[in-house]
Design a protein around this nucleic acid. Sequence first.
DNA 1: AAGACGATAGGTGTATACATTTTATCGCCC
DNA 2: GGGCGATAAAATGTATACACCTATCGTCTT
Lengths: 242, 242
Amino acid sequence: MDGQAQDEDSAGHAGGATTRPTHAAWLVEHLRQAVLDGVFAPGSRINEVHLSRDLNLSRTPVRAALQMLAGEGLLNHLPNRGFTVREVRLSEIVEAYEMRALAEGLAARLAAEQGLSDATRRTIEEALAAGDRALSDGDAREERRAAYSRTNRMFHHAILDAGGSQLVRDVVRLCQRIPQASAHNVVAFDLADVRRRHEEHHAIYAALLDRDVGAAEALMRAHVASVELSMIRTLSRRGRQG
Amino acid sequence: MDGQAQDEDSAGHAGGATTRPTHAAWLVEHLRQAVLDGVFAPGSRINEVHLSRDLNLSRTPVRAALQMLAGEGLLNHLPNRGFTVREVRLSEIVEAYEMRALAEGLAARLAAEQGLSDATRRTIEEALAAGDRALSDGDAREERRAAYSRTNRMFHHAILDAGGSQLVRDVVRLCQRIPQASAHNVVAFDLADVRRRHEEHHAIYAALLDRDVGAAEALMRAHVASVELSMIRTLSRRGRQG
DNA sequence: AAGACGATAGGTGTATACATTTTATCGCCC
DNA sequence: GGGCGATAAAATGTATACACCTATCGTCTT
């Protein structure tokens, strides 16, 4: 749901005439989301002809998109046998969170080292305030969840940007790109857990303001690890029930 | 240098009839290495027509390769403006090492948790023995460096495989894929440093055998960080001299 | 002379045609 | 009835054609 900056358009850099994305670029977004949402069975082959017909396009832009996704690692490619959806063991989902905890921790450390720009500060404060509101209001659960999900993304995104490292951003992207494990499908945690983690957001922000490098990294690591825990609980509960 | 398993051929999985790679797949390897070696100027546009002519191919396989590399993040793509070589700030090289230290540390931890298979044990012991030989022999410097470089790769690769996480491997790949910073061009360290790091290899292996999870992770992190230090020294020395 | 406008050449995006390889089908033999 | 091989169907890899976009250069206007 963040559109991803593989083609430098989607993220509208404020200003003016963003060139209209090409068919292939649009398809990359579309297909990536489809794979992450588990629309295609893991390991299944993707038929270029069928896909092209369904989309009213020729094979050329479809292949272009598939090739990019293969480069991202979401699809595998075998010569003369086309593209298949990457299969992912359950353990990889856990490992992804551990890796992500390290990566986001590093981002927090870098952000603390460099200090936050005014713009970043505003963004984070906005995210925190929106989170406060979303969690205090007593309204509908689903709506609240969606609202908080947005502020959560905003917070993490802001810190990744503040860290400034393209590489770290790429790593986090990689960790979130596990087929069939799109956070959307899984994040339905206890309200108490969400509240606690929101408090952690506040603590992380405080550490960043203090330029407390060690605390920023440690807190962020623990924070993501806590998300991992909730995730594991949810997964195993589902596993038991079917 | 490691061929990279984006198309699942290159890495010969032991056994039998590996299907001959397609032109595009071969091009991916070729162009990736070219970009990493800095053959193309950073930020420069890549002209599909010229490249096709030089390679005696049509634009189709060339584009296929470029799209995959764009997916990997080595190239950027702008609609109607084609592919450009990703530019990388110097700070990113450092960040790449920090990220890699965390990733390989995680791999070591996972390997320690799971324990080493007999095959892995053999591979690592072979790498360590070969390293011992390469560092004790008194022969030509360049040859020794190349020999040790191989054993070094073998060691790290074995542990990544032992960790078993595709994701962690991908992250390490990502960290090594910094255009113009191919390790090859830079690794020319003091013999004393290399000897010390080889000792660290031994220590890491011992921790893995002990199933000492914490030590394995910590030692590996420190080990990669030490490489980072040597790298920084080399870079700044070069920076000073020209 | 500086800047706006338009023509033109070059480059990319997409469609289509064809070659090669893989996969499925059918018939045959055991 | 089941396995094996030839053949046909389908799918992928590559080449080529063309439409559209971009960029550059020259011209014209002010």
